[in-house]
């Protein structure tokens, strides 16, 4: 082997990250070794600090540097509106739209009995409690439109049916910029069933 042991160790570590294969890992090591020691130290510090200081928001499950995340601390947001998502990356996707001004609840998963994840593991009772105490008037369920996401949504809807809260689910339909002929029958059926009026 013509590369030093340290090089190989670092490449293996980077290669274990999602989306990074062995070649990309090697390229990253080459790049990193080209940087000044200061820059490398800054990077390492940032990694350690992020791991040490970022926790889950105690209220919604988003990333937070204190007890509460930025979104939960933002008083201009509508505290009566709650959007339930599976993962923080889903929250990020909705935030990017810039149109949603309510709060979130991140489940960190979805009901998947085969992977032994049930309502209890997802802490769905915690969600119900939050709705009872926080004065929520509408819950928007934004779980993924696949089997496990659907089951999770239905379970939540049932769980909340006894509470005095409106429960909605984000619409499914044809993606913008795509073409109808490539849509699967289920999506197309749903899009037809949940069609909306067009303003003339």
């Amino acid at each position: 082997m013509f590369l030093p042991r340290r090089f190989i160790e670092l490449s293996a570590k980077l290669g274990s990250l999602p989306g990074i294969g062995p070649k990309a890992a090697d390229r990253l090591v080459f790049y990193l070794l080209d940087q000044s020691e200061e820059d490398i130290r800054a990077l390492a510090d940032a990694l350690v600090a992020a791991k040490r200081e970022i926790h889950f928001c105690t209220r919604c499950g988003n990333f937070a540097q204190g007890n509460l995340c930025e979104i939960c601390q933002d008083l201009s947001r509508d505290g009566g509106l709650l959007c339930v998502v599976e993962e923080i990356r889903d929250l990020a996707a909705i935030e990017k739209t810039g149109v949603y001004r309510g709060l979130y609840h991140v489940l960190h998963g979805r009901i998947d009995p085969i992977a032994r994840v049930g309502p209890e593991e997802l802490g769905l009772n915690r969600l119900a409690n939050r709705i009872r105490t926080d004065g929520v008037h509408e819950v928007i369920i934004a779980t993924n439109p696949n089997f496990n996401g659907d089951i999770t949504a239905m379970y939540i809807a049932k769980l909340l049916s006894e509470l005095n809260v409106r429960v909605t689910r984000i619409a499914t339909g044809i993606p913008k910029g795509s073409e109808l002929e490539f849509a699967d029958v289920f999506t197309l059926t749903q899009a037809l069933e949940k069609r909306t009026d067009v303003q003339g």
Partner: peptide, 26 residues
Amino acid sequence: EVMAHKNAVLRQSSFTTPDMSLLDLF
């Protein structure tokens, strides 16, 4: 898919209490 998930819950019922409302949903 529903069957696979329901059977998973039924199988796990020998060592954990199954969630009845989840079974209702299935």
